[in-house]
Amino acid sequence: MEPTPEPNVVAERQARAAARPQDTRPQDGAESYGSGTTIFDANGISIYYGSFRAVTDVKLSIYENEITAFIGPSGCGKTTVLRSLNRMNDLVVGARVEGDVRYRGTPLYGKDVSPIAVRRKIGMVFQKPNPFPKSIYDNIAYGPRINGIRNKKRLDEIVEKSLIQAALWDEVKHRLKASALGLSGGQAQRLCIARTLAVEPDVVLMDEPCSALDPIATSAIEDLMKEIKSQYTIVIVTHNMQQATRVSDRTAFFSVLRNEESDTRTGVLVEYGQTQQIFEDPHDPRTQAYVTGRMG
């Protein structure tokens, strides 16, 4: 089932593995996942929409080849934080990020950083499946094409490989030229995942990818996430706490902080740790209230 990665990707990964620093993760649980390399390092970021401060002072590190889940009530800013990781917030008029967030050590919001280059490395899957009104094939080939791949044979290989990775190949291999809009919701979402994987990103950000799907399609996508995490780093926003416990290695719990005096609200990171610890032994009473269903 697992397709062989491209040779250059393998070489790149080996080089990365060789250059890996010591595992610096807080080992608060018994298990250890992934390689231990830090992918994202947010050191106290605040995100604003105009004068509204959506998120305040978020500190967290996200590690390679792990699945990190963001959970929390609506309006707590988890999607905002997620979208700041590949600079999708740049598209929102008035949005700005304060503070330091690094991707593999490079400041994401540095002066010379191009959001285009960032997004080629850090892909995103959205809440609602959003296939282009093109054929299934053209949807997958879209990313490779904008990266300059024109060779038909090469594109065929990428399309097949990505669809196999996204567990969609068997369902669509006979109708690659058919419109992607004819797919069901679950298929369309897997198509969107395949489209993201086709550009071979380093990180895949997922914004509630299963919220519009039924349990069977959800489970297909969760299996797919576990399958591909050996090759990618995944960050997922979810409203479904069972989903976080099923798929994620680490969980960040966000909540809303109300300021009664100025009547404002902002999102804060309450607790971040290994998923098992967050759900079984939360240190913060707010986390405990949320994961046990007493709030939110």
């Binding site: 282009f132 009104p133 969107c192």
Partner: peptide
């Protein structure tokens, strides 16, 4: 649709 395209770089 625009976001999907932006997210691919």
């Amino acid at each position: 649709l625009r976001e999907a395209s932006y997210a691919l770089g």
